[in-house]
Design a protein around this nucleic acid. Structure first.
Length: 182
DNA sequence: ATGACGATTTACT
DNA sequence: GTAAATCGTCATA
């Protein structure tokens, strides 16, 4: 699968995701059935983009996957850059201000907030239909498949204490990809 | 009204 | 490994 940003035509292959499985998932923004202005689109139909702002400075993007009123979503954590790499680099450099460390190709989209910088994903895209919108969509890459043997699983990253759910193996990434988050 | 806390990134010791 | 940056959101009062 790949994530594509329209207009400037910037795209990447999805190589790392995390699943958030509804009201029972204590690590989810919708844990316990919490429903607020911020997470409202998680309760919408599948295919919507749930874009949220966090840590006072970063955006992250999810694909809503559950039925209406079921807050299931998949957080896109990393991409392998495919198109518009020069644009990605420009946006990342701009977002970092005058950072000192070098910006390697594998630093462009290897993290949920990094990929949002590279693709120019912001709060204005919250709620867009990713199956239709020319601005932001996900599509299958012809001739490819996520073979189970190439996908590894593990605990989700960056969670606080989420009880039983803290260590649930709901992070999935392509084995051996240099573009997954560190 | 207030305060604690992030589904993170970056730099520094 | 530890810590700073930085502010919207949410629970509590």
């Amino acid at each position: 699968m790949r994530l594509l940003r329209g207009g400037a035509r910037v795209a990447g292959r999805i190589v790392e995701v995390e699943a958030y499985l509804g009201a029972k998932d204590l690590a989810s923004h919708a844990a316990g059935g919490r429903r607020t202005a911020r997470n409202e689109v998680m309760y919408g139909p599948p295919g919507l983009a749930y874009v949220y702002f966090t840590y006072g400075m970063h955006f992250c993007v999810n694909v809503v996957c559950g039925r209406v009123d079921e807050p299931v979503a998949v957080l896109i954590r990393a991409l392998e850059p495919l198109e518009g790499i020069a644009m990605m680099r420009r946006r990342r450099l701009a977002a970092r201000g005058r950072a000192k460390s070098p910006l390697h190709p594998e630093d462009l989209c290897s993290g949920p907030a990094r990929l949002c910088q590279s693709l120019g994903i912001h709060g204005g895209l919250n709620g867009v239909d990713m199956t239709i919108s020319p601005n932001l969509f996900v599509e299958r890459v012809p001739g490819t498949s996520a073979l189970e043997s190439l996908v590894r699983t593990g605990p989700r990253i960056g969670l606080g204490d989420a009880g039983n759910w803290t260590a649930a193996p709901l992070r999935f990434h392509l084995d051996g990809s240099r573009h997954v988050s560190r």
